[in-house]
């Protein structure tokens, strides 16, 4: 993971979460992981292509996802949700889009050019994700609603 990529993702995640949810956000220690790793329950995945290739995964438990989506909906004066319905999934998708979008904008300003794919949401139990040949940077974010792990696996185009 190229050093220059780290900060844009960390900063974007921090500022978007703080602004959208209107709560305190604590960033945990960053660390690296290799290959196959478990997914907590709900994962929003955004693909990257261009100068670099890879993906960003926003990983949280179902409970956290419902609470986060509810907070977002309430801030727009809409009804909170109790199950992860279509509205809930759309909210999490939007959150992932905002964070990745802001990070990519920061990277564009530094001279790195690449595009995003629309986010996809995965949910289920006992899921794992693996990327061959890339190690992932984990950015844990602690919120009152629970923990969101931002899992960034990108590499230079060879």
């Amino acid at each position: 993971m190229r050093v220059e990529y780290i900060n844009p993702f960390v900063e974007a995640a921090y500022s978007v979460l703080k602004e959208v949810l209107g709560t305190e956000v604590h960033r945990g220690e960053l660390y690296l992981k290799s290959t196959s790793m478990p997914v907590l329950g709900v994962a929003a995945l955004v693909g990257l292509a261009g100068d670099v290739e890879g993906r960003v995964l926003f990983d949280m438990t179902k409970d956290t996802a419902i609470k986060v989506a509810s907070t977002m909906l309430e801030s727009m004066e809409m009804e909170p949700i109790t199950t992860l319905n279509e509205m809930g999934r759309a909210s999490i998708t939007e959150l992932a889009n905002m964070i990745t979008g802001q990070a990519v904008t920061k990277l564009h300003n530094l001279g790195f050019k690449f595009d995003l794919t629309p986010p996809a949401i995965f949910s289920g139990d006992n899921m794992e994700i693996s990327d061959s040949g890339v190690e992932a940077l984990i950015v844990p974010m602690e919120l009152p609603q629970g923990k969101i792990e931002i899992n960034v696996a990108v590499r230079e185009r060879g």
Partner: peptide, 15 residues
């Protein structure tokens, strides 16, 4: 030079 946050025990994509 390309500086990377990388752990040598993990996979790497160096040619």
């Amino acid at each position: 030079i390309m500086f990377e946050y990388h752990d040598i025990l993990n996979q790497s994509s160096v040619p």
